[in-house]
Design a protein around this nucleic acid. Structure first.
Length: 579
DNA sequence: GCCGTTTTCGGCCCGACTGTTTTCAGTCG
């Protein structure tokens, strides 16, 4: 993945140039280019040289550096910068509250080249007393060091969202607030988040802030003002609360929802139109006349744009799409007609078939697919051919008694290291739906892994690839796989890619979802439920699907039962006929 | 360093809070 490497290098170069005190706009250009490279759908080495310049934020100079990296494996300018400033100095920037100016002074004046050396300097008492660094600053740096030690890694949405919603409820109950909403990456439903942003209006900001910083789960107050306060919770999560005027709520919501890249683009548009956007509203520059700000829609409307759903606000083409009036009509939770990946107590799930049916009925589903693990996954009591035959019989029996809901006969088979499946074709032929997933051999090379998944896609009975990249947020990196090749093959055979809604997975991620959609690959949002309460995870999968620009028609499980079964069968027929 | 239905040069999003200073730089989002 050259893209990620180049993105990392550009980010490092931005930091190094920042440390050197270079022009801030030059630094920003590198950061923007890094962002652009990181979210590029296509592998950059496959682009023609003149296509490089078309990437937003990449001009003549940076295109040259990208080419240089592809051809030689390094960038001379970057190597030179690293000789000038040791890489350990970059590490100092990871400390919250310590920025480029201080880091550079530490390096130049005290020869600090790493976090360890900074800690030694503090130990020796030589930090406080440097000009502009008094006791308070030292304390803040110590706190930043401690916070870094405890880890501030990004957390799964499914962990932070419930915690943040609980805080919102608490403030609502005690804080004399008027309107209150989550903002930031939580509102955009990003799959992993760094902190929680909450926005409110209130006639008594003092009181709201008191309630906020006084919550029992607050470990430390980072800052406290009348319009903004920040705290750190016992579990290390940072939460920011802002109180704004009623008339500014929409503008503030728009501003604090981000993303940064989306907002910068909007503001640039505004400036070109003689307007100014800040968190208080949208104004004409000439007369400072206020044109809106109470509602978020007003900001977009004044710019001549329809409302853009928060999940799309990543500067991945949504503003251009809005201008052309071709924003997607995003899929909603209510569009979902069933769950195609559910485990029962026949393998490692907790409930029997009837309980699962009850749970699904409560969601108003038309069908669920019971897709237990198979024998390759011994730890999960995977089913062998004999037990799967028994389960099929049990499902057929249960279906006879059901009127409004159908249980689809399924399995989540293992894609073995050589690409074969762990059950024989004659039993798979009796199923309505087969999910094929990788559960082992994560250390394979990219070409091996890709080949393995391609074989599964070509298998006549496979209709869905489960959690296609295998990542566990904050725990396990995705295994290396050429996703573009996988998606093209899936599009060719009509095999669906799963959007696994399990909060720690969210796999495919938003990025690959969009790529899949653009290539015409069908998708399915599944919860991978092992307990009935996991059915609730569907909303996380839907958020992810929305971030991938999906409409209801892009998903298998928005179909009614009959067309769904027809589509699954068509996929198998196509492969059997070798087309 | 990028970029252009105002521009190929001169702009580049905008403001809050903190700490160390007496008017502001640094950091963050």
């Amino acid at each position: 993945m050259n893209n990620q490497q180049i993105s990392k290098i550009f980010n490092n170069m931005a930091d190094l140039l920042d440390l050197k005190g270079e022009n801030v706009f030059r630094v920003r250009a590198y950061r923007r280019a890094a962002e652009s490279m990181g979210s590029l759908a296509k592998e950059v080495s496959l682009l023609a040289p003149d296509e490089l310049g078309a990437i937003p934020g990449i001009g003549k100079d940076l295109a040259g550096k990208i080419l240089e990296f592809i051809q030689t494996g390094e960038i001379a300018h970057y190597e030179a910068l690293k000789r000038e400033i040791p890489e350990g100095v970059l590490e100092l920037l990871e400390i919250q509250g310590l920025g480029p100016k201080t880091a550079m002074r530490l390096f130049k004046e005290k020869n600090v080249k790493s976090i360890d050396e900074l800690e030694a300097l503090i130990q020796s008492g030589q930090l406080a007393g440097m000009p502009k660094i008094q006791k308070k600053t030292e304390e803040n740096i110590l706190k930043g060091l401690e916070r870094r030690r405890r880890g501030t890694e990004r957390r799964p949405l499914g962990q932070v969202l419930p915690a943040a919603e609980a805080i919102v409820r608490r403030i609502k109950e005690n804080g004399a607030v008027d309107r209150i909403l989550l903002a930031g990456s939580l509102r955009r439903r990003k799959d992993d988040v760094k902190d929680a942003d909450i926005l409110t209006t209130s006639r008594d900001p003092q009181r709201v802030m008191e309630v906020f910083v006084g919550m029992p789960q607050v470990e430390r107050v980072l800052s406290r003002g009348l319009t903004k306060s920040s705290v750190i919770l016992q579990d290390g999560l940072e939460v920011d609360l802002r109180v704004v005027e009623k008339d500014s709520f929409g503008a503030a919501l728009q501003y604090f929802t981000g993303s940064k890249a989306h907002n910068i683009k909007l503001r640039e548009m505004a400036v070109r139109a003689g307007l100014k956007i800040n968190e208080y509203g949208i104004f004409t520059i000439a007369e400072e006349k206020r044109l809106g700000g109470r509602e978020e829609e007003e900001i977009y409307a004044v710019l001549g744009l329809p409302f853009i759903p928060p999940e799309l606000r990543e500067d991945r083409g949504e503003i251009e799409a809005a201008l052309d009036n071709r924003l997607p009509n995003l899929v909603k939770l209510e569009d979902i007609k069933g769950d195609l990946h559910v485990h029962s107590n026949w393998s490692d799930g907790s409930h029997d078939l009837i309980s699962l049916v009850r749970g699904a009925e409560e969601k108003g589903y038309r069908y669920i697919a019971v897709t237990d693990h198979t024998k390759g996954l011994g730890v999960a009591h995977g089913l062998d051919e004999k037990r799967l035959r028994e389960q099929i019989k049990a499902i057929d029996g249960a279906n006879k008694k059901l009127r409004d809901l159908l249980i689809l006969r399924g399995a989540e088979v293992d894609i073995r290291a050589d690409g074969s499946l762990d059950l024989t074709d004659d039993i798979l032929a009796r199923l309505d739906i087969v999910i094929a997933s990788v559960h082992s051999g994560f250390k394979q090379s990219e070409s091996q892994m890709t080949g393995r998944i391609l074989s599964a896609i070509r298998h006549p009975y496979v209709s869905i690839i489960g959690h296609p990249t295998g990542r566990i947020i904050g725990e396990r990196e995705p295994y290396p796989v050429d996703m573009e090749a996988v998606l093209k093959e899936a599009a060719h055979y009509g095999v669906a890619m799963e959007i696994n809604a399990y909060p720690f997975r969210l796999d495919l991620n938003d990025h690959f979802i969009k790529m899949a959609k653009d290539l015409g690959v069908p998708l399915a949002v599944n919860t991978d439920a092992h307990v009935i309460s996991h059915f609730d995870f569907m909303s996380y999968g839907i958020s992810n699907a929305r971030r991938g620009w999906l409409e209801a028609r892009d998903l298998l499980n928005t179909l009614e039962t009959v067309p769904l079964r027809r589509k699954l069968k068509a996929c198998t027929d196509r492969k059997k006929n070798g087309t």
